[in-house]
Write a protein that binds this DNA or RNA. Structure first.
Lengths: 219, 219, 219, 219
DNA sequence: TATGAATGAGTATTCATTCAT
DNA sequence: CATGAATGAATACTCATTCAT
């Protein structure tokens, strides 16, 4: 999406504001059911000015998807590259994913519901990024099998169970709900790991190892 | 002899056909992004005739939701009322749910994505039915805790894990995919039950008990 | 409007029933805002059968207009031809007009509001009949001037005052209202005649003369 | 300097033009039988732009009713509050009413025919205003009875006669017709007052008193 | 930067009417 | 006589987008 050339210093700030507001509307009503006029009203901008910032409605959708996928992939790549037990890395990835979901519930709604309104190159890029994330999870599961922590599972099915459990959270989570990302991650991972682990693997000290990892990181 | 007013014999058949076709379109493109004209074209009917069958677009959505929720609730109530171990009943419910999801993937897409386009009484009824299903699951989990099969869990969180795992399946399942409902149910339940069970509960004979139950039922 | 050739004995009865029901709907909602489907529902007939009786929607309008104008003109011509004082004849015509208005309030609504939806020959015939009625009133007024009962008035303006007073009654009259046609006619005529009469004309015995005329008629 | 959001300077002018044009169409064809497309064509505007000005079709109807009722009520309240003989005030009100009718014949057509297409609050407000006008007339008639100018009449019936006589004028009056409001008011009031007055009341100098009142007012 | 005005195709829905059975 | 099914144009209204100023 070509941005208009040459714009002042406040441009990007306002632009990001508008995307925020659009995300909230899209989440509540759906992308197709939300009008440009409505976004303009919430943003306090007439249509002409709105288009100066957003370029097109689909552009807003692209930006929202990016705001989900860019930090998600960045974090996932970093975690995957850590020199740690794969099970620990899965636990870290789980929490990061849930933090993103809970922090940006509206963005996730849009991400999960309206990606099908993207066309052409935008859609292709999105699907590529989704697949990359899925691969990172699947590779971690395979690594955990290699270390003997997990049984021999169908890696794709294990990955899908992992994603089922996490990604559906947006459907019922509420902003400021009773459970935070760390708690949910502990619960989800406890369930999943007890299902995936080999009989000899002892997961009881996982949370202790997570705590020690965090301490090291902060230092 | 004049026929009484109403609808002819072919009416209901054609009507069901149209709902099928609409479900497929809604699943692919979303409810809001699918036009009545498009449905008419697929159904091979002019707009007037189409409305003769459907009444309104929202009506189609209601029918699709009903096709999911009615058999789901009927089956769930029947299973919940069985005089069997709660864990066994959860396993049976899991498979029934997955059978419905895999058999009507497009209906489930619509069910999961577009219920928010329902208004008023239709919406209220839908939410009531959803809550009833959730309560059935949650009550089975509580029963399993009472028998000592499961640990003392937050019953709501356990129910949400159960539903996360199952309900997100529609996002990646494909018609005629490699895994059937029975296999997925076994895998999902293995994971969930190993996460939920108390140390002394032995789930190894669950599948054997499922098989014996089926044999009894058929008789 | 060509009626379908060859129909049984009940045809005309049912036809008249349908026109009654349509008149009521048209009066309440307006001709343009009333649908054929609605008429069919009230008549308890499917659309096909309805068209068998009515021919077309405009046809209904024509019939309703006829039901007003035909008895009105018949009565007006008869009264105009009476060998009586023109003032007495005006009083008789007034009451006849009001009887028709009060007896068929719904028909009058349609008559006053929706004649403009008629096209071509139907419209021309209607306007011709309306003008004939106006001419009868105007000629009676002229006759009353000739006998010296009324001052020298602009006959057209006098006629319009007469019609204003009577024809607007449908706007506020209610079925079974507190005033009947005879009372209203007396009141309206008292006002109009006291305005129109020449100083030497004494209208005080008019009602007495009306009573005597009625007695003679009945005999 | 960015203009604040809202409407530009030409907006209201064009808006009023469109309402004018719509009134003419509604008067000729009826509200229900006039399409938005037709209005747009006459206004030289595409549908989108038309809606930018009108909001909705019913809105047009509301505006037209307002254009009749607002000046009518304003004038009626002012006249009713005058410190003058009630008969004189009735005569002044009569002329004001006829001036409005003759000046805006098309608006009056719509006012008389299509108010029933208003819904909800719009309809309620209209009926309230109509009743207020009727009450003003009726109160003037009662006041005239109190001063002894008029006989003891049923005040409601007298009011209805007054309104019958005036309000039906739109049915036959033509723009630029041979009679102006002052003339018609004199004629109508002569008829009505001669019908309503008590024997001892002398109305012969009414027109002279009207003339003197006008002179005083201009000063 | 921002506005108000305009477009034209698109929305869901209703209409009077026809006709084979 | 009467039905149910079908049509296709018409209904009021909304949409994302553009552009001169």
């Amino acid at each position: 999406m070509p941005r208009p050339p040459g714009h002042g210093p406040g441009y990007e700030i306002k632009r990001q504001q508008i995307i925020d507001q659009a995300a909230e509307l899209f989440a509540r009503q759906g992308y197709a059911a939300t009008g440009i006029a409505e976004i303009g009203q919430v943003a306090g901008l007439a249509k002409g000015a709105l288009y100066y910032y957003i370029g097109s409605k689909e552009n807003l959708l692209v930006e929202i998807q990016d705001r989900v996928l860019r930090p998600l992939l960045t974090a996932a790549r970093r975690i995957a590259a850590l020199d740690e037990d794969p099970v620990l890395r899965l636990r870290l990835l789980s929490q990061t994913l849930l933090e993103l979901i809970l922090a940006r519930l509206d963005h996730i709604w849009v991400y999960e519901h309206d990606y099908r309104h993207l066309r052409g190159a935008n859609r292709a890029r999105l699907l590529r990024q989704r697949r990359e994330f899925e691969k990172i999870v699947q590779d971690l599961l395979i690594a955990a099998m290699k270390t003997g922590a997990f049984r021999e599972l169908d890696p794709r099915l294990a990955m899908l169970q992992f994603l089922n459990m996490h990604n559906h959270t947006y459907q019922w989570a509420k902003p400021g709900g009773e459970w935070n990302a760390e708690f949910l991650s502990r619960e989800y991972c406890a369930t999943l790991i007890s299902g995936f682990r080999s009989p000899e693997y002892d997961a009881d000290d996982l949370e202790e190892r997570v705590r020690r990892f965090r301490e090291r990181e902060e230092a």
